[in-house]
Design a protein around this nucleic acid. Structure first.
Lengths: 333, 333
DNA sequence: CTTTGATATGAAAGCGTTTTCAATGTTGCG
DNA sequence: CGCAACATTGAAAACGCTTTCATATCAAAG
């Protein structure tokens, strides 16, 4: 016994009106006489009619769902953005199809294709390796795409970010001002635009402004994992670094704990500043100083921007830059 | 200039076959002569045809998407489950519509309704307050529902969990074995079945087995937040507790840091054991001892179970219990 | 050559909405 | 009372696919 579904046709019959009229009242179209509206509403209630969104999507060519591509939900930086995205989406009556990409180009392309097949009205992309192939897919997509907390050197897509170059430069300057001369730059893969094209640029800028020579022995490219950070200590010490700028909070926690476990005093002998100001910065001891950024808002604003784009509203600025800050906690002097 | 979409009809025309045949090759139906299959495939490639999943969903009554209701993606316990869910979903060609509920009953019911309107093929629910209304919605849903890492005292739905009662009892026994007599029980809302009906039961069991009287002054009901845990110290000390079982890792981190900040030595003067074995346990110092549970697997198994249910396969056991363990780190003696 | 039993294919009816366009009602006004 | 102008309603055509059922084709067997 399959559960019977009641359709718009059933409602029309019971209410003795046409499907068109039922459709109108369901969609809040004002061109319906109050009396018939009431009558239809009663039948809808009595039959417990629920519009089928799939049929609706086919007929109207709008699904009120957007695709969200995220490197890994388990990464608190990204999940914070995702929360902002979902809240605003819900506010605007959209749903989110969420997929993890592991920043794997092939997977991203594939996911993008299934999202487009599912006729999502828009897409929010997180990830910092926008390959040519991906860019090509974005272009051919009829659904607008916005990058959230992610950069593409080509700047072809609308996006929401902070000014990474300036933020990192300021963070590194802070370290320099404390007397550090050998400052490590530790980040994830240099294949990511955000690392090679933004953070590293800010790092170099700060060094240059202070008249310190850039030394690529101080650049550590690794994974965004706690373990990776933790095992970095010997190398960090060997390079003679006395401070580090780190591109991810979990990684930074690893670096810091690795240092501490090796008997290095943070911040006494080694200062650490991280990038994302997630909850993690407050959990570890010492608490980590960090660049601050409005994580939730980045997601929220990206979604808001997307709603405008999906609505064909003209938007003043396609690439929005949110303010950042520097939060001094206890991992720096 | 709207981007033109090519339909199955276009392909059929170009390949000089019927839509039915195109549909067959697209769906891998074997009843197609290799020669015509090849011909159709070529046209598909040439026209860059992509099947419209919405139309497909309407015609076939299957959307290959499942709804996932999660209290908060930002909570690493749940996001870990979500990762398992998504991976398995992808493996079986499903997509996930993810929505945050904040464990808010009203929101959950509403979300459930929009998921059903969107004709999801199945639903995975996370959250521990299954109200009557919710249970009612589950029942009327034509899509199967499975609970992941969440319990309902009524046990009406298929679910995947660990044996919380036994796990907590074991954890608390461990604390007792270390000589603690006054052990605090700190958890989130007692409205959650997992707390009042499982964890607390395990806690009481352990006490009883050891001949220790239950004292509700030692039960602390609070939020699942770091701050909440951190500000618990005075109360904990006032109650004379020398150890605590905590129901959430972030909360536990707060409790521990609050203690430490107040000059209480962990584990010397106060032992802490937590519940979820997320990454957080390794980030804090001292590292937290914890009940261990296969987070990713709970999600993965839940999704796998759901695929069977959606497929109308008969499943041997509807409520699966995965193994748990106890991981001794440095927050206990 | 027929017959037969697969094997391949096509026609057309849905799937449950939205939307266009025409038809019908209603109201106000001279 | 007659008519223009506007407010309501309905019929039916999409939307892009799957699926059923009937037809056509074909190789092997008689």
């Amino acid at each position: 016994m399959e559960k019977q579904t009641v359709t718009i046709y059933d409602v029309a019959r019971e209410a003795a009106v046409s499907m068109a009229t039922v459709s109108r009242v369901v969609n809040g179209n004002p061109n319906v006489k109050p009396a018939t509206r009431k009558k239809v509403l009663e039948v809808i209630d009595r039959l417990d009619y629920r519009p089928n969104a799939v049929a609706r999507g086919l007929a109207s060519k709008k699904t009120t769902t957007v695709g969200v591509i995220i490197p890994d939900v388990t990464n608190i930086y990204f999940s914070s953005l995702a929360r902002g995205i979902d809240d605003i989406a819900m506010m605007y009556k959209y749903n989110i199809i969420l997929t993890n990409s592991d920043e794997n180009g092939g997977k991203e392309v594939q996911v993008l294709n299934t999202l487009m097949a599912k006729q999502v009205d828009g897409i929010i992309f997180m990830g910092n390796q926008v390959t040519d192939e991906l860019r090509e897919e974005f272009k051919r997509s009829k659904a607008p795409v916005v990058l959230a907390g992610s950069v593409d050197s080509e700047k072809a897509q609308p996006s929401v970010n902070i000014d990474y170059v300036a933020a990192v430069a300021e963070a590194v300057k802070n370290l320099i001002d404390h007397g550090n001369q050998k400052i490590a730059f530790v980040s994830g893969s240099m294949d990511e635009a955000i690392n090679h094209d933004y953070r590293l640029k800010g790092y170099k800028k700060a060094l240059k402004d202070a008249g310190i020579a850039y030394d690529d022995k101080l650049v550590f490219e690794t994974d965004y994992t706690y373990k990776a950070g933790q095992s970095l200590e010997p190398a960090l010490s060997a390079a003679g670094a006395t401070a580090a700028f780190v591109g991810d909070d979990e990684l930074a926690a690893g670096v810091m704990n690795g240092l501490t476990d090796a008997g290095v005093d943070v911040p006494g002998e080694f200062e650490v500043i991280t990038s994302n100001d997630t909850k993690l910065t407050e959990l570890v001891r010492p608490k980590m100083s960090s660049i601050t950024q409005p994580l939730y808002d980045i997601g929220a604003v990206a979604m808001r921007l997307l709603t405008k784009l999906m609505n064909n509203e003209t938007v003043e600025e396609n690439t929005v830059i949110l303010p950042y800050g520097l939060m001094k906690r206890s991992s720096t002097k």
